[in-house]
């Protein structure tokens, strides 16, 4: 474990029966660091977050904490609409955490002011909008001034105004030195909070910044169009069904395309914008079947 790390995961695997959700995940989070986890639905993001928060056991590997009393705040992807006010709810959660009564009351007042929910603190949570509930979710997670904040898709389903307010709140929390580990679907949180972005693909963790850096360095030795592509920050991920000969042909024509094998004999190609149109045209000529196409923003 690194000396500065708050939490370190070493070769963590998680199986549900015969299905391996996470495989050999190694991750380390230092104080004040911000890590975003991205991936498609069911890729294992929430499972990883629950393992980090200590909510579920893992099948293999090791989870090390900086110290035994590490304060972890966890905000699930949604909070249930309880038949109580946000003040009552936070009081219950604070008392469960054995916070002193006066300190708890002060903290609840502070959090209502911080998240701009002062007007609604006497309203039952059953009447709250999704944005308001998400704020209460973050309030309970930060009730104890956590050293590590674990957030499961904190911005999902929120309107623009709520997103802006939550983003600025999270920026302030991060500025106060809290480490943040968040599962996200889009790039917004990553771009606003900075830090490192990882992808979970088929249970494995991939550093998208390293991937982007690799692509970027190969582009630097290439033509100016490639630089433009990186500036735009777009890559395309194609899932293809193609023969060995077709693969060799395309590899020869497009040396900068990154190939990886998928299940059922399929191949994934990560393509820069400069190669995208010519690759597509070549694929049509070669009658290569495309299973899916996804445009991805590369974190800069």
């Amino acid at each position: 474990m690194n000396r500065d790390s708050l939490i370190t995961l070493k070769k963590i695997s998680k199986r549900y029966g015969s299905r391996e959700v996470l495989s050999n995940i190694s991750l380390s989070l230092r104080q004040g660091e911000c890590i975003m986890i991205r991936g498609s639905n069911g890729s294992g993001k929430s499972t990883l977050l629950k393992i980090v928060a200590g909510l579920i056991p893992f099948t293999a590997g090791e989870r090390q904490l900086a110290h035994a009393k590490l304060v972890i705040g966890y905000a699930p992807d949604h909070l249930a609409r309880l038949r109580m006010t946000s003040t009552e709810y936070l009081t219950h959660m604070g008392r469960l955490s054995r916070m002193p009564k006066e300190q708890l009351q002060t903290r609840i007042e502070q959090l209502h002011a911080f998240f701009n929910l002062e007007q609604s603190k006497s309203l039952k949570m059953t009447h709250f909008s999704k944005g308001m509930l998400q704020k209460v979710n973050l309030m309970q997670a930060t009730l104890h001034d956590p050293e590590l904040l674990v957030l499961d898709e904190p911005l999902s389903g929120l309107d623009k105004e709520s997103v802006q307010h939550l983003l600025s709140s999270l920026q302030q929390i991060k500025a106060a030195g809290t480490s943040i580990l968040a599962a996200v679907h889009d790039t917004l949180l990553a771009s606003e909070l900075g830090g490192t972005t990882f992808w979970i693909k088929q249970g494995r963790l991939e550093n998208s910044n390293m991937q982007a850096a690799a692509l970027h360095s190969s582009q630097l030795s290439s033509v100016a169009a490639a630089q433009k592509s990186v500036e735009k920050g777009a890559v395309f991920e194609l899932l293809l069904e193609l023969s060995e000969q077709q693969l060799q042909h395309l590899t020869h024509l497009f040396p900068e395309v990154v190939w990886s094998k998928e299940r059922h004999g399929l191949m994934t190609a990560i393509v820069l914008q400069k190669d995208y149109y010519s690759l597509m045209s070549e694929m049509v000529q070669q009658k290569i079947e495309m299973i899916s196409l996804q445009r991805k923003e590369v974190a800069k």
Binding site: K50, I72, Y74, D77, S97, Q140
Partner: peptide, 15 residues
């Protein structure tokens, strides 16, 4: 009585 998401939160607070 608790939704699964709330159960996770309660567990973390109760320790």
């Amino acid at each position: 009585i608790e939704a699964p998401s709330q159960e996770a939160v309660t567990m973390l607070h109760a320790g």
